[in-house]
Nucleic acid binder design. Structure first.
Lengths: 191, 191
DNA sequence: AAAAAATCTTAATCAAGATTAAGAAATACT
DNA sequence: AGTATTTCTTAATCTTGATTAAGATTTTTT
């Protein structure tokens, strides 16, 4: 199995080599070229994906036909459209690579089998979901409390390396602001 | 055990009467008077709570000294400050009853023991976290895509009964707007 | 190297919603 | 019942960030 995923799993549960091999047998490696889609609006999302290398964005098209980015996934993140996966309804999201990306696919039917064969899978994903939810709540907090400008600076200083990896207009979208406004903020800062 | 919690658990996992009794033995009933606090800023959050009756709000004090409500919990919801609970750091939140409220407390140490004695507890909470996360993402989507006015109407029409249970200024806070603006929206609607 | 596509910047105008400051109405308390 | 507290409303002014419309710069493709 991918060494990063092993390390990631071991951070949260005790797992033997045999169990790692079992887990791994349910995973399918995939690669995506930059701009390739993992999922498009209308499709059923049927898998969870662990990104081993690269960058993925999840976005939807809003009522003004703008791409609204919900979040990114990078190396060592699990991503999926939970709403489509869990509720088995067509996705409203696009999941697209913003770089050439390598990931491990865990199909939901494999996930369910794995949960039976290796019950600690439940624990592992329970903990991941808690972490994911905490991150999502923190983000909501920032969106409530910070001005656009503060939000931008906070994001850039918290993710300096990542900010270099994606175009500025995508960061603007993630933060819920226009690219023009981001330009304005950056121009102010430089004085 | 509380019949609502039994029904709630059975919705997601198969569970026998013996197991229900085991689960129940780890729960401690609590009551809160209106305006009483379950948690205050600076305290360690050590439990998860299942609300059987009443209403709870989770809020923090922002940098302008305003109460910013993150969300409410009502009958048949699990609530806690996950950040404090999981990361074992002092809470930034206030958790307060907005009505006389009854809940079942599951202390984190009990939770951990329960996960060992009854492993399907992991599955149950994994599924709850997924549902909770989906709700949080939907909310983010609405906040990105709707104007304040749309957000307010959407909330009221989706939660007509709840809107009667809490003061308007709390709904304003939940939606990230001022009470004055909510008054304005309501005045417009009435024409 | 040239052309095309993608990304970023600037600046003027506009609008959504915040702020401020009363005052009115409703609820709770004695 | 009367007072105090909480909640809600109105309206004027102000601010943040969106919109619009170019044009400049960078990156990719041929």
């Amino acid at each position: 199995m991918n060494p990063n995923l092993i390390e990631y799993i071991k951070r949260y549960v005790n797992i033997s080599q045999t169990e790692i091999d079992l887990f791994n047998s349910y995973l399918k490696p995939r690669t995506l070229k930059k701009k390739e889609f993992l999922l498009k609006e209308g499709q059923l999302c049927k898998s969870r994906y662990f990104i081993t290398k690269g960058c993925i964005r999840l976005y939807y098209i809003d009522n003004k036909a703008n791409e609204q980015i919900l979040h990114f996934g990078i190396d060592n993140w699990w991503i999926t459209d939970y709403e489509s996966l869990i509720n088995k309804i067509p996705s409203k999201l696009y999941i697209q690579a913003t770089e050439n990306t390598e990931l491990l696919e865990l199909a939901q039917e494999n996930f369910e089998e794995l949960c039976i064969e290796l019950p600690k899978t439940e624990r592992f994903f329970r903990i991941i979901m808690e972490k994911t939810y905490i991150a999502s709540q923190k983000r909501l907090e920032y969106m409530f409390s910070l001005t656009g400008e503060e939000l931008y600076h906070k994001f850039i200083s918290s993710n300096p390396e990542f900010a270099q990896r994606v175009p500025q207009y995508m960061i603007a979208s993630l933060l819920g602001m226009t690219p023009e406004f981001v330009s304005k903020i950056r121009a102010n800062k430089k004085q």
